[in-house]
Design a protein around this nucleic acid. Structure first.
Lengths: 245, 245
DNA sequence: TGAACTTCGTAAACACCGTTCACTGAGATC
DNA sequence: GATCTCAGTGAACGGTGTTTACGAAGTTCA
């Protein structure tokens, strides 16, 4: 049954335990509390043993961030699972609300993954070009892809796309179209105008901006219940894409 | 001439030196490098001496964040100084571009002030209700105030303001109107519809969102030169307020 | 002027931290 | 069964925040 040798099984198990403890410390006492010695103590081993698994504390934090992205993706996938696969607007709502809910429930993880300067949490290897975390990026792109496939000609927003962004947006458009294609949905490459790609990017700016401001408490005034504001923003974003709701 | 006693002068001097060294460490080597011992070493004193000035390292970081806000405000004020006082659109551009420029040039400071969870960088005393940092908030509010005063009936955006936000927005409206009044500009209290207050808030979401994404490198695709995108966003924000540029 | 008081800074100590290194002992391999 | 691999250990180094008792200088006031 088990292909792996005994040693390999134990190693994999320990590796999972390390990350689980690291996560627990991050959640309960913040990033600074994720210390090698504390993790080792909790696992009943000594700190130098962790160097058999990670090059350094920074390396561990990097991989922890990957784990967090994966878990976030799993959570968002679960949100999507209960939604009719043809109701794309509902899918967008679900993913965006799920992202906000997760961020508010896991502020430390959010800060680590989405608000770390690139030198404190060294960006992944250069081949890893999907930023925003591997798995989370996947979810985001998939939903954006479904949005495109189902709603082939989103109302182009009134704004003009700066010419100097054309090349970058073209590249992103290709990624989006590839994502749609990878889901098995046939799509006309001509269906996605650059204005729509630009609008998707601007939507991410607003989604991220709202969530981060809420998590970090940096709105310019005290807001009793920010949820209606978030929902209103989502409604506006979707309306600009032609979803009258 | 000097009212203060010798001891008081020395104390004030040391306090400035401490913060200056702390800032230097933050800029050059990141938040974790802001160490009591490193600061003391640089100043030629011992670490426990710092406890005569700050309750703890956390307390020092809090006050450092205040300093940073003040400096940011000074920088933005300088940007504003060279702009015609009746060209409000140019003032908005200047403040927003200045904010982005500062954030990109000082990522560590930006992360400390604008992307710290409230428990790692304990929020100021409860009487300090202007969030977003004392001085920076002032600048932001002042420019928003001038915007209102000069352009008394901004085109109300198409969105409906959620009813549950009315109370909070009313409070923010009063702050904005008070800020305008404090600048000596007479303004009709009826001149600022809630939709405009709401739009200002949404503009902050977008401004902050773009800048933070850029500082943290979390745009969904690599962007060669993000500046045109930022400017385009500003243009759109101002257009929605009735500035056709 | 000199005693009393306040305040800044020190040295020593404590309990942590990341990281390196030589070493042991158990699993894997042949 | 000998050999090799490798997870884990214990000791050590230099770093950290923080507390404590203490000295020395500035300030105040009789």
């Amino acid at each position: 049954m088990t292909e792996a040798t005994r040693r390999e099984r134990l190693r994999a198990e320990t590796e999972r335990d390390i990350r689980r403890q690291a996560r627990a410390l991050l959640v309960s006492h913040g990033r600074d509390a994720v210390t090698l010695r504390a993790i080792a103590r909790e696992l009943g081993i000594t700190a130098p043993a962790l160097y058999r698994y990670y090059d350094s504390r920074e390396d561990l934090l990097r991989r922890l961030a990957d784990d967090i992205c994966t878990d976030l993706a799993v959570e968002l996938d679960a949100d999507l699972a209960v939604i009719a696969s043809d109701d794309v607007a509902a899918q967008v709502y679900a993913v965006c609300r799920g992202f906000r809910r997760w961020a508010l429930a896991h502020p430390q993880e959010f800060a680590l993954v989405f608000a770390s300067t690139e030198d404190t949490l060294g960006v992944c290897s250069p081949d890893q070009r999907e930023q925003v975390g591997d798995q989370f990026g996947r979810i985001f792109l998939e939903v954006a892809g479904r949005l495109i496939a189902s709603h082939p000609a989103p109302t182009p927003p009134h704004t003009d796309v700066p010419e100097s962004l054309h090349a970058d947006l073209e590249a992103f458009r290709r990624v989006l179209l590839d994502t749609v294609a990878a889901q098995g949905v046939p799509v006309d490459p001509e269906v996605l105008p650059l204005t729509a790609v630009y609008h998707i990017t601007q939507s991410w700016v607003r989604l991220y901006g709202h969530v981060a401001l809420e998590v970090f408490g940096r709105f310019p005034f005290a807001i009793g219940n920010p949820e209606p504001m978030f929902d209103s923003m989502l409604r506006e974003i979707l309306a600009e894409m032609g979803f009258t709701d």
